[in-house]
Amino acid sequence: MVDVEKEYPQIDIIAVGAHPDDVEIACGGTLAKLADQGHSVAIIDLTDGEPTPGSPDPETRLAEAAAAAKVLGVSKRITLDLPNRRLFDCFEARVALAKEFRKYRPKVVIGFGDRTPMASPDHWQAMQITDAAVFYSRLTKWDETFDHLPVHTIGRQLYYKIAFEPIHKLDAPGSFVHDITDCLDRKLESVRCYQTQFPPAKDYIFDRVRGAAIYLGATAGYGAGELFYTTRAIGTHDMMDLLYPEPRDYSERNLRKTSNVE
C-alpha cells in the first residue's frame, strides 16, 4: 500500500473542471477566499483544453493556468491526460480522477453541476466523471485498479455553475451563496490570465462574470457571491449560527434588541 501521507500533501478542497479556466469562472472567488482563510486548495483540470482557438500550443494554456492559480492562492494544480472535445464519462477517466482524490485526500470536492447548453459538452461529462470518482475514491477491494493507493472517503461534495450560464434550480437538496465580495477582483484577474481565451474582443465576458457575481451576492445580501448546490440537505446544530453567520450582524441584532427593551 502506498504511503500517501509521506508522498502527497493533504488538500482540504479540490475543485474539478473540464478545462483550464472553468473553475476560475465558476468559483474562483470562493477558492481565493478559502486560501486566504488558511485552507489548502487545489484545482484538477481533466484536460489541457487543447486544441482551442486562439492558443498556439498546450504549453501556453498551461502557463496561463499556472498564473491563474497563483492569483487565487491555489497551492496545487493538476492536469489529467484526458482528451479535450472528446471527454467522455468512462471507466478510465473515473479511475484517473479517483486516484488523485486518494492521493490528496480532500475534505470537499467541488465540480460541475449541470449541462451547459450551447457550450462544451465536456462540462456535463466532467460532472459525471467527478460524481463517479468521489464514489470510487472510497471503494475497498479494488487495490490494483487504483495502484494500491489507500481508500479515502470525501466528506462533502458541492456543485457549481459556470458564471454566465442560466441559473436555475438543480436536482439537489439545497443551495447557498458564498460571499466573495472581497475576492471578486481576484476572480476576474485570474480569468484575465487566459489571454488566449479572452482577448480584447471578448472583454464582454468579464462584465458577464462580474454581473453574475453581483446578482448572486445581492440575493443573499452580499456585494458579490458564487452559487453552490449541495448533495445533502444543509443541516445545523445551531439555528442562530446558521441564520446569523457573521458575528457583526448578530451583535447588531442584539444591540437593537437591547435598545428596544430600554
Rank of each mutant, 00 (worst) to 15 (best):
A220F: 06
R115L: 13
G73F: 08
T52G: 11
V16K: 06
T79M: 01
T116C: 05
R210W: 10
L216W: 00
H178C: 13
Q37C: 06
P200W: 12
D48N: 15
D238I: 04
D171C: 03
C90R: 09
G28V: 12
T47Q: 03
D22L: 04
A32P: 12
L227T: 00
Y136T: 00
R138F: 13
V23Y: 08
D22A: 12
F135R: 13
K107C: 04
T258M: 14
T236W: 04
V108D: 06
W124D: 14
V41Q: 04
V41L: 04
G221W: 00
T153P: 01
I214G: 03
S251V: 15
D89Q: 00
D147H: 12
I162E: 03
T47V: 05
V134C: 10
R86I: 01
P106H: 07
Y204A: 12
A69Q: 02
F164R: 04
K169A: 14
A172Q: 04
I43P: 00
N254F: 09
F164D: 15
V74S: 02
Y215P: 00
E50G: 02
I44P: 01
I13P: 00
Y222F: 15
P150Y: 10
T181Q: 15
D3L: 14
P9V: 11
I154R: 03
R86F: 15
A213N: 08
R210H: 11
I13N: 00
H123T: 04
T258F: 15
H123Y: 09
G17S: 08
L97F: 03
L184T: 10
D122L: 05
D171L: 09
V41M: 06
L149R: 02
R210T: 04
I214R: 14
S55N: 07
T140H: 15
V95K: 03
E5F: 14
I154E: 05
P247W: 10
T145W: 05
A26Y: 03
Y250A: 08
A133K: 00
K141T: 14
G223N: 05
H152T: 07
D89F: 08
K103S: 06
A18E: 07
G111Q: 02
K187A: 11
A67E: 15
Y160P: 12
A220T: 00
Q197S: 14
M118C: 04
F101S: 00
A18N: 11
M239N: 03
G17D: 05
L158W: 15
E24H: 08
I154Y: 06
N254S: 05
K257H: 14
L46Q: 01
Y136H: 13
E59K: 06
E24W: 05
T60D: 10
S120P: 08
V261M: 13
A220H: 03
D207N: 09
L243Q: 05
R210P: 07
A67P: 14
D182A: 15
Y204W: 13
R156Q: 08
L72G: 02
H123G: 05
G28Y: 11
